[in-house]
């Protein structure tokens, strides 16, 4: 097992390097001049000579006149920057955000915390609803409740999340005024203590969490249901029932444990997904999360920020797939992961 994990880690490093070069090259293919872009808003305020001086300074600082491999190696931290400093991904410097004029790590910190905070609630709520619902529908396959659930989950699965968000916003915020329409904090609120602040934050993320949960019900419910139906049709279930075991024991101890095998990859995938923000939800509810940051980075051509986010997600995906493979071996003794 240890040898297998080491080998996979080696692959991860190779894939990461190839991916990083491809991504970096791809972004550099986009015809844009970061120095000009940076100065564009100030063009009117600067006199011609001032503009020219600043423009040349910026090009030099950004190393824009150097060839692509050199810029890539600088970004990776394997080549000295124009100021002589060697600092890049390898050294833990994930780049500099041109939009925020700060190190990317500093920029990402708060949105990442927000996204994880929101996604944890959403993931727990989704799994808490979909797994029991899927099991119940599988056990009561073909009954009215199952049919209604199939229709409702199909609807939830089919309607785009931004439509769900806008409908929920209208109902809960504008019509009934139960939840706030946006943000993560009541403006002007003076909190007496940290708990009050935490509760206010919960209040603000409640509707986004509900929307995220609602829109994710369809997929997992149907997945659990079909997996459970397969498991319930197995011979060992008939045997268990023939042995006179209670139905609850048959469902949860025999069927569910076996149905869990294909579901576990999705569940792990969901937990890994807590790092990834939702562009639509965060923008609609004005939440300062990773999805929104990523969107802003793209819109403002802040490529070091976007690259850092994408490389982070690449690592999460690579490590995630390794974890999923290992977990297969752990939950299913028939699968050996040491080859």
């Amino acid at each position: 097992m240890g040898k297998y994990i080491l080998k996979r880690c080696g692959y991860i490093v190779v894939v990461f390097l190839i991916l990083s070069f491809l991504m970096y090259s791809l972004y550099n293919l986009i015809p844009t001049d970061p120095a000009r872009q940076e100065l564009e808003p100030q063009r009117k305020a600067l006199k011609a000579d001032e503009y020219q001086v600043l423009y040349q300074q910026l090009r030099k600082q950004m190393g824009l006149d150097d060839p692509l491999p050199v810029r890539y190696l600088r970004w990776m931290g394997l080549w000295a920057k124009p100021n002589g400093e060697v600092s890049g991904m390898v050294e833990g410097n994930f780049g500099y955000s041109n939009l925020y004029k700060r190190n990317v790590v500093e920029v990402i910190k708060t949105p990442m915390a927000n996204t994880i905070f929101i996604n944890i609630f959403s993931t727990i709520a989704s799994l808490g609803i979909t797994i029991p619902l899927g099991i119940y529908c599988a056990v009561h396959k073909g009954k009215r409740f199952d049919s209604v659930t199939q229709v409702v989950t199909m609807l939830g699965y089919s309607i785009p999340v931004y439509i769900i968000a806008l409908i929920f916003m209208f109902l809960f915020c504008v019509l009934w005024r139960v939840f706030p329409i946006m943000g993560m904090k009541t403006p002007g609120m003076e909190y007496q203590n940290g708990w009050q602040e935490f509760v206010d934050m919960l209040y603000h993320i409640a509707l986004p969490v509900i929307v995220m949960t609602f829109s994710s019900l369809g997929g997992m419910t149907r997945y659990v249901r079909s997996s459970m139906i397969d498991a319930l049709s197995m011979d060992y279930i008939r045997t268990a029932r023939a042995k006179g075991l209670k139905e609850k024991v048959v469902i949860y101890s025999h069927a569910w444990r076996n149905a869990l095998l294909p579901v576990i990859t999705s569940i792990l995938g969901w937990f890994l997904g807590i790092f990834g923000g939702s562009v639509i939800i965060e923008n609609t509810f004005s939440l300062n999360g990773m999805g929104k940051l990523y969107w802003q980075g793209l819109n403002n051509l802040d490529f070091e920020l976007v690259l850092a986010i994408q490389m982070f997600y690449s690592v999460v995906s690579l490590v995630g797939s390794l974890l999923i493979d290992i977990s297969y071996g752990l939950v299913d003794p028939r699968v050996r992961v040491d080859k």
């Binding site: 029991p132 609120m189 509760v199």
Partner: peptide, 24 residues
């Protein structure tokens, strides 16, 4: 247990809405 957890979450959110109503 799962149902209890979900119920607790709903309660927290409801309590939150009650607490956060007052702004100066």
């Amino acid at each position: 247990k799962i149902l209890a957890m979900l119920l607790a979450m709903v309660m927290v959110f409801t309590m939150a809405s009650a607490v956060a109503e007052s702004t100066s």
